[in-house]
Design a protein around this nucleic acid. Structure first.
Lengths: 221, 221
DNA sequence: TACATCTAACTAACCAGTTAGTTACATACT
DNA sequence: AGTATGTAACTAACTGGTTAGTTAGATGTA
């Protein structure tokens, strides 16, 4: 009987593992069901942990959700900042940024769902989104703006207003994943297959390049 | 006592008014709180009607939500189809379409929230989205595709693949409203003010034109 | 022993949906 | 004309199941 105990996650060694398991389970549950739809029981079950343990490590459901936001947003920020720091000329750096951002979303389905859900929440309660925006979006926005400025000065890019261009760009990168569920239904194909993703990645780079580069389009030999 | 009665909505006259009041209240509530977050009590209160009346007119919460989807989606479809039917050359017709779609979203905040929430739901339960897509999105997609083809044949547009270009275009049109809550917080301006909306509308048309038109950009005198 | 980690069992609040009617008015019968 | 009967429209009050969060205590470890 005491031997069976050792199977359980609880009580034994690494408490960090329990915390991490809860957080990971919470990311999945919040992404799948949204904040209002997420069930704390489901999170506990999926983390193989007693529900009360959620409240031992996190104040309440909302605080757990805050931790989830930090978890997922710190991921993109790191990936994107790394891409933008590459020592490359503007055109290539832009392409690397787009690819990186695109691939991050493609390989982290939870991330995209959580961002969208949070944008919806922001309408009613902007406080959380304000923090996230300051901490994670603003640095990305600044770096991309700097890249646009650099490209305009070197003559590679049209001069554009970042405040309009950056959101437009991001929308083209991200929207594919928003519409993937219906695309799947309408076309019968799987929009998340490697081939389709490669196709789309190319189309996104083409679309943004066409909108931004000074070089006349359709002229790459 | 009998005189007071005439104030109430119930029992007497126009039952259509009650149904419409419920539907309208439901649009607002579902848009504000999402499907999981929406409360039937709140809908009833906001419609000034007893909760049981929701179940008199609609089977259950889900059916009411179906009716809400039809209500909001039939609106865009009508507006957009009308714009696309204008007897104009491709470039102008595209601009009219973009403006119309943009303005519809701008003046129907509930619509945008419901679309986004529904896209999120579609990941888990595509059945509802399948119906909506067939009935409302497909016609729009077809009309815009036809316009793109026509423009390519007349030499006004680059030849593009609608399956990639149409979603990209719509993303640029719509994404502004998704990010409006944080923009408001980050910039301190109201993104929904008439001036900002006019700005953004112009930026959207510029972005899409740059990505699509064969005419070299930056050359409008 | 002292402390951190963890749990079974509980509770108070909430919420979708139901029930058992009431009200106002129309139509039919006398 | 007056009265019974039918019915669409509507409501107050309830129910059963769910859910976030708590409590009191058990378990392992140093």
């Amino acid at each position: 009987m005491a031997a069976l105990r050792t199977i359980r996650l609880g009580t034994r060694g690494k408490p960090e593992e329990s915390r991490a398991a809860i957080l990971k389970a919470a990311v999945g549950e919040f992404a799948r069901e949204g904040v209002a739809g997420a069930r704390t029981d489901a999170i506990a079950r999926s983390a193989r942990v007693n529900k009360a343990l959620l409240y031992y490590y996190f104040k309440d459901k909302e605080s757990l959700y805050d931790a989830v936001l930090d978890e997922v947003f710190s991921g993109v920020r790191a990936a994107v900042q790394n891409a933008l720091a590459q020592p490359l000329p503007p055109c290539e750096r832009l392409a690397v940024y787009i690819s990186t951002h695109f691939d991050y979303i493609a390989s982290n389905p939870s991330y995209h769902r959580i961002v969208n859900a949070e944008f919806l929440r922001a309408g009613r309660d902007p406080s959380r989104m304000r923090r996230v925006a300051q901490q994670y979006f603003l640095p990305i926005f600044s770096s991309v703006s700097a890249l646009l400025k650099e490209g305009a000065e070197s003559g590679d890019f049209r001069p554009v207003d970042p405040i309009h261009f950056v959101p437009s760009m991001i929308s083209v990168i991200a929207f594919y994943f928003t519409t993937a569920p219906i695309m799947s239904v309408l076309t019968g194909f799987d929009p998340m297959s490697p081939e389709r993703l490669a196709d789309r990645r190319a189309a996104v780079i083409d679309f943004i390049s066409a909108a931004l580069f000074t070089r006349t389009k359709g002229e790459r030999k």
